[in-house]
Design a protein around this nucleic acid. Sequence first.
DNA 1: TTAGGGTTAG
Length: 492
Amino acid sequence: MKRSRSVISRVLSQPAPLPSLASHLDDVRLFRHAHCRGVLSDDVFPPVLAACRFSPSLSCQVHALMVKTSANLHPVPATALLDAYSRCGLLNNALDVFDGMALRDTVAWNTLISCLVRHGLAADAVSNFRSMAEDGVAFTGFTLCSVLKACASLCAIRLGKQIHAWVIGDGDGSVIMATALIDFYSGCGMIQDAFDVFRGLNCEKDVAIYNSLISACIENRQFKEAFSILRMMKPNEVTLTCALSACSESLNLTYGKEVHCVMIRHGFDSDATLCNAVINLYAKCGEVTSGRSAFELIPRKNVVSWTSIIEAYGSHGHGIEAWKLFRKMVEEESNNVSPNAVTFLSVLSACGHSGLVNEGRECFFAMSNKYGLNPGPEHYACFIYLLGRAGRIEEAWDLYYNLSLDSNKLNSAVSIAMLNACKANMDLVRGEQVAKHLMEQDAENPGSYILLSNFYAAAGKWEKAESLRRLMRERQLKKEVGNSQFDVMCCS
DNA sequence: TTAGGGTTAG
């Protein structure tokens, strides 16, 4: 921020700006001022792009001005533009900027790779890392941190270990690199290697690396270790969010309440991310009312806050309350929050569990018609489950049949929902068609055999039910045994 | 003057 203000003020030939101008909005205003006075130069664009990197429309407007002044032809402003597009979600614009760059230095490649990782294109990130080397551009620690993230998503252990070996050889003992390595090993399920990186670090450890190790423990279900690390450190908001996540995952409500108290004592109770983790803790541990209280106290509720509380009610069978909250979310204009795909899934699921067919239908169609969101297979599965449970087998079948014409929209979750609908409505003919799809989609999943076997058993087709169990044994497929956990409260 | 690490909802 300091840098951006000084650059702009230099352009305007003005004295140092007032401290009150230190916001993104002020940067943009100053930029507009500079533009009106016709004093735009290449070095104005990077700080302004950093200021409007969360706004697609502002990024596009600045891009237009860059074309007008030819600033887009220079690597530094062009890289800043690529980064702005990447951060505000315009992936194709970002890639076009990179393609149009005549000179691509290390930073430009790093920004591209980081952009691809941010948008979930890990394989493309790795292939561009290789292209970078082929083009003779030297990589840096920045590059490797992004590539390690891609390796974790792809579970590319070999490449990740090669990078680790290179880091050791290069003598990069930075805490940032160590954090990236911990994330990589954790993502690949190699928690001991993550601990080895942590123990082997010779420089001062900061709060982020502790947080990373706690997250690694949670991801690998090592809750005891996560709590031990917590006791050794001075927590910040992120630490407490991780701690709450550990409590939710391990259903440790007692410790979760302690963390909630610590959070209030530290004055972190207006942090939306942390408050959302509190809602999730209470919901997972069955205390929906406490979750609701936490929700009501959040000063600026975001889409995750709303979705968390809707999910909390829905998963505990309170479909009507979940529906009411959804209506409140979309009707209160002051919220300035729109439901996303996860919100719709939570609402559909809540309606399904409570038999709210009309509400579920309204929600399903509003998703695309009103909010422009394409339902994914998980939304179709939820809606078909809801229809089947309510005896609307014809409507469920029409939807399923149309989906079966487009393989991108049909997966095993949708087929399982349809098979359950057929089972609930004793529709053997359609059920057998779905069973065929399911075995094509997921023949390695023991759950599919159990489901099909149960379907035939419910229809009285015992021989078919038994033959599926036999086939499962022959293929040595074993379903993982389910388990439940509960705390026993002792009152003296 | 551009790029890298830790957190929340299904």
